[in-house]
Amino acid sequence: MTLNSYTEKELTEALKKHDNAAYRHLYMNYRGALYNNILQIIPDTETAADVLQEAFIQIWKNIDKYDENKGRLFTWMLKLTRNMAINQTRIKNFKVHSKNEELTNYVSVIDNKTPQLTAINHIGLRQQVHKLRKELKDVIELSYFEGLKQEEISEILKIPLGTVKSRIRMAVIELRKEFL
């Protein structure tokens, strides 16, 4: 994966001018990483591809909002894409519990190295999250993959807000060691 034809600054400038070549470059370089992230939330490849399209449209429409002083372009795109994927699961009326179950199964299927699934290689962050101990896994599932606010997690898990915060912190530190 190389971005050597543009520096990040040049790319951002061209994107803000809605330059077609820059968007093509952006798409070709980042689609795989973003699509993988969508698949972590929406295993269905067709729906995930629709979300990928919608995410790039939103990146195109909202590029003026990206502030390079506040972080890297990819971080911004990833947040936007993740939010869109989560919104999609809500629109589709996935029930929180059945979704968890479904994705837990999905991850365990990968662990069993079913040929089709390893072949399409959806492995990523979620698989790492499922290796965390339960109380850390739960807060990341609810915050990162379901987009819930800290207060909402506190309510669902019936633990104090401070505990939610400290568990998220512990979880992200562990994840960084293992994956990110």
């Binding site: 968007y23 798409y27 990483a33 591809a49 990928l52 399209q53 890297r72 990819f74 971080t75 990833l78």
Partner: peptide, 27 residues
């Protein structure tokens, strides 16, 4: 941010060629 970006770029899953074509055309 760089660390996460590198890891995620390494951990890519490519969509189908039809999807690529459709999205590029849309953009």
């Amino acid at each position: 941010e760089k660390e996460m970006e590198d890891k995620m770029l390494q951990n890519s899953t490519l969509p189908t060629a039809e999807t690529d074509k459709r999205i590029l055309k849309k953009l």
